[in-house]
């Protein structure tokens, strides 16, 4: 048990003294997941809104596809991403493998279906009168769409936060496409796995605490806003 107690003590020391390696790892996580989430939110909300409000052929198929992609294992995305980005892959010339950009792409692929699917559900559950009311008050098509999104804002925010939760805590994509390069692509989850493997629990626990605190902070902020 001593190693765990020592690990926890060490973890708090690392956090209190703002250990540079710890900060670098957290920085990579925030930058990669933040960027991936930004683009996934734009694309996911747009897809979810369009599918949710539109009536067209193949809509059901898209809904099924999005719901299926929600459960996509991260290692599968990592594997597919790897096959595209490795030197022998279709996009091998881009030289993206083992860079933060590769991690961003992988996390974008992971988060987008979740955000799209949850936005779609939110928009479909929206009161039909929102659209009618906006129109009868003189809203144009874009103004009406914006109003529907505004009315569904909490559900859409929840969708984005769920997407964030999915990518911030994932390891499959980060390790397979990022490669866990120290100071470059090593993020919270790959570092925890790596450090634990080495028997260095302090840094792993510290990162675990930070991961939880960030997730808790974001969810608490959302609840307060709601």
């Amino acid at each position: 048990m001593d190693y765990i107690i020592n690990g926890i003590t060490g973890a708090f020391q690392l956090i209190i003294h703002a250990n540079p390696e710890l900060l670098r790892i957290v920085g990579v996580s925030l930058r990669v997941s933040g960027t991936a989430l930004f683009f996934a939110a734009i694309v996911g909300v747009a897809i979810g809104f369009r599918v949710g409000t539109g009536t067209f052929r193949g809509k059901k198929a898209i809904v099924i596809l999005l719901n299926t992609l929600m459960a996509l294992p991260t290692v599968v995305v990592g594997l597919v991403g790897y096959s595209f980005l490795s030197r022998r892959g279709l996009l091998g010339d881009w030289g993206l493998l083992y860079t933060p950009y590769a991690m961003m792409i992988g996390q974008f692929v992971l988060a987008t279906p979740i955000i799209a699917s949850l936005t779609l559900a939110a928009v479909q559950a929206m009161d039909r009168r929102v659209s009618l009311t906006a129109r009868t008050l003189g809203a144009s098509e874009p103004q009406r769409n914006w109003k529907i999104l505004a009315e569904a804002r909490f559900a859409v925010m929840a969708a984005v936060i769920t997407g964030f939760g999915r990518i911030f805590a994932e390891i499959g994509v980060s390790s397979m496409l990022g490669g866990n390069i120290q100071g470059y692509t090593r993020n919270i989850t790959t570092a925890i796995a790596y450090e634990t493997g080495k028997g260095e629990f302090a840094l792993g626990i510290a990162l675990g605490i930070i991961l939880l605190v960030i997730a808790l902070g974001i969810n608490a902020l959302f609840q307060i806003r709601q």
Binding site: D127, R129, V130, L132, T133, R135, T136, L137, G138, S140, E141, K147, A150, E151
Partner: peptide, 22 residues
Amino acid sequence: ERDLLAIRRKMTLMEQNPYLFR
């Protein structure tokens, strides 16, 4: 659509069970 919107903006319908934005 633009000209139609201009006319639509001269009319307002209050529904039986009106929706108030949240």
